[in-house]
């Protein structure tokens, strides 16, 4: 964080001292953005531990973010399980290992597809709504009104939302995995016949601690990234309604990209730790 804070200062000096070098303004803008985002994140970690805690607002955000995202993430998980099963089946038949279908599908869903698809859906729904809502509050001076009334708007609006997103995405991801596996069971039963207990016996027999835990842990990081990016974009939006639209749009794009980057990093870490 400190490095980034210093970087911003240095970038400003760099512009003055080396103006003749024609540093692309987009590059300077990028580093300024990184610096501002780093300060925003560091402020989040300061505010999250300091009283007073906005418990009521946090619970409300958990409801709005978690419960209201459940239908979308559930449907997506179900379709994901069903389609994956139907797509894999011919290939596995060709290799004579169709009995391994529950093994393959459960590993794919629990380890990778479930968390990532849930996070992407979550980013599309939650990050954009945070960006738009906070952006709209910013341009209509509602955030200023909160500050004037003695409420810390950062704590009330940002901390509660980011915390709720961080805690709700893992829950949604687990539910999505379960619904996806049920969709897979139905997919198996379209052409073949197997009982629910036998199917899930195969699934749980396959999954190990090292498959489930890293997948759940990474969803906390996904949730945090999605929440903080949505709030950062909204909280710092400007230029009226155009700025609100831009905040919502860039919140989705950047948080979706961050999901893949975090996924890449966590895969490398689990690989190093021998959990793959």
């Amino acid at each position: 964080m400190i490095i980034f804070m210093q970087l911003r200062v240095n970038v400003t000096e760099f512009c003055i001292d080396f103006n003749c070098m024609k540093i692309p303004s987009s590059l300077l803008g990028f580093f300024n953005e990184i610096g501002a985002a780093s300060r925003f994140v560091s402020r989040y970690f300061q505010e999250v531990v300091q009283p007073r805690y906005e418990v009521k607002q946090f619970i409300k955000q958990c409801f709005l973010i978690g419960y209201r995202s459940l239908p979308l993430i559930g449907i997506t998980g179900f379709i994901m399980g069903l389609v994956l099963t139907m797509q894999l089946r011919p290939t596995l038949i060709a290799y004579g290992v169709v009995s391994k279908l529950p093994v393959m599908v459960s590993l794919a869903i629990v380890r990778e597809i479930g968390p990532v698809i849930s996070a992407l859906i979550f980013a599309g729904k939650i990050s954009s709504s945070m960006g738009a809502e906070l952006g709209s509050m910013k341009v209509t001076e509602q955030i200023d009104a909160m500050e004037v009334s003695g409420t810390n708007p950062f704590k009330y609006l940002v901390v509660t939302r980011v915390l709720a997103a961080t805690l709700m995405l893992p829950v949604l991801s687990v539910l999505s995995d379960a619904i996806g596996l049920y969709g897979s069971y139905l997919g198996v039963n379209i052409r073949d016949h197997t009982s629910l207990s036998l199917y899930f016996f195969e699934v749980f027999n396959t999954l190990k601690f090292g498959d489930v835990l890293p997948a759940i842990i990474k969803t906390f990081f996904f949730g945090f990234a999605i929440g903080i990016i949505g709030c950062y974009k909204g909280y710092n939006s400007s230029k009226g309604t155009e700025g609100v639209g831009r905040a919502a749009n860039s919140a989705v794009v950047i948080s979706s990209l961050m999901v893949f980057i975090i996924d890449l990093i966590t895969v490398q870490i689990t690989d190093v730790l021998g959990l793959n």
Binding site: Q142, M146, V148, S149, G150
Partner: peptide, 26 residues
């Protein structure tokens, strides 16, 4: 700030809250 009232040009009413909640907020 509790001793100063501020009327914003745009009113700045919290549009996700009722009038009661808006007044209760400060």
């Amino acid at each position: 700030r509790s001793r100063i009232g501020f009327l914003f040009q745009s009113n700045a009413l919290y549009d996700s809250m009722t009038i009661r909640e808006n007044l209760e907020f400060p």
